[in-house]
């Protein structure tokens, strides 16, 4: 078993929390894992990505090779397009449809969706709306993780345990909101 996942977004959107939950599940399952992330200058409102590799045998590279990602999970629509060269044939793109517009010339969302539909069969997630329903717009990253869960290779229960482990220190209420957000997202693919 080997899974290569690219997490994409803009600095500050919480992709590292998504990574941390999957990392936890991978470690708990006794799997090998590498998760490369971006720190420093580009974090400030720039495009950020995390390469996450999970395997039951030894892993070497921290980076995913072109054309070998099983999943691109993006919390921002434009960012989901940026990493298409890494997508494996038959790989899945799961993206939020909420744009983060902080640059001039940001294309209309409809054009982004069109480009995505042209290239792949994406799963589109109105993450912020669903996160609000779950209790907080800030939990939209967990909505995204929920929606992408079937493509991660982990049972939803394992990921939920990861959410509890990650948010536990912040109190039961925060855990519940995030688990609810995860389940709301998960219903999209599991209905």
């Amino acid at each position: 078993m080997e899974k290569n996942i690219i997490l994409a977004g803009v600095g500050g959107q919480g992709i590292l929390s998504i990574a941390a939950v999957i990392d936890w599940a991978a470690l708990d399952a006794g799997l090998h894992l590498r998760q490369a992330e971006v720190h420093g200058m580009s974090q400030r409102g720039g495009a950020v990505q995390s390469h996450l590799r999970i395997s039951d045998s030894e892993l070497f590279a921290d980076l995913i090779s072109l054309g070998t990602a099983d999943l691109i999970l993006s919390v921002e629509p434009l960012e989901s397009l940026r990493y298409l060269p890494w997508l494996a044939p038959g790989g899945q793109v799961v993206t939020s449809t909420d744009p983060f517009v902080n640059v001039e010339g940001y294309p209309p969302v409809e054009r982004i969706i069109k480009a995505l539909n042209y290239a792949v069969e994406p799963l589109l997630v109105p993450a912020e709306k669903l996160a609000r329903q779950a209790g907080s717009a800030r939990a939209s990253n967990m909505v995204m993780l929920g929606a992408a869960a079937p493509f991660t290779g982990f049972e939803p229960e394992c990921l939920e345990a990861g959410i509890e482990a990650l948010f536990g220190a912040k109190g039961q209420e925060i855990v519940e909101i995030n688990v609810r957000a995860f389940r709301t997202g998960h219903q999209l693919t599991n209905a």
């Binding site: 409102g45 720039g46 072109l66 054309g67 397009l81 298409l84 640059v103 294309p107 480009a115 290239a119």
Partner: peptide
Amino acid sequence: TTTVPEIVINRP
């Protein structure tokens, strides 16, 4: 590999 569509602009 799949190419990056032209509409993808840099986000410095």
